[in-house]
């Protein structure tokens, strides 16, 4: 039986990812001002934001290709031809 496509996960992660990008668009100036501050813990903001977006948007893009049927070949782990020892 074919595995059901992850539509609910795609929609949920899409909403989260889309909301994050919408916030970036709406508060562009404020975000840029805060994220370029060099005092206190402000320099950590770009790193945190990049990680948060990568989890949310990364999940969305993974489900996106899944839903389109573009998936990796399961079990196609690499094989390595080890040289035969001469001894």
């Amino acid at each position: 039986m074919q595995k059901p496509k992850p539509y609910p996960q795609l929609i949920a992660s899409g909403i989260v990812s889309g909301s994050l990008y919408l916030l970036l668009y709406l508060y562009e100036r404020e975000i840029l001002a805060a994220f370029t501050r060099t005092d206190g813990w402000y320099p950590a903001l770009p790193v945190i934001a990049a990680l948060v977006f990568s989890f949310a948007h990364g999940a969305f893009t993974a489900y996106f290709w899944d839903v389109l049927g573009v998936t990796g070949r399961r079990g196609r782990r690499f094989r390595w031809t080890r040289p035969r020892s001469s001894s």
Binding site: T36, P46, A49, F53, G58, T61
Partner: peptide, 25 residues
């Protein structure tokens, strides 16, 4: 770079929006 306030987070996240589709593929 962030310690010097040089990261334009908008550029980074827009690039990320496209590149995460690409890297999965």
């Amino acid at each position: 770079f962030a310690l010097h306030g040089l990261v334009d987070i908008r550029l980074a996240l827009i690039l990320l929006a496209g590149s995460l589709f690409g890297i999965q593929l």
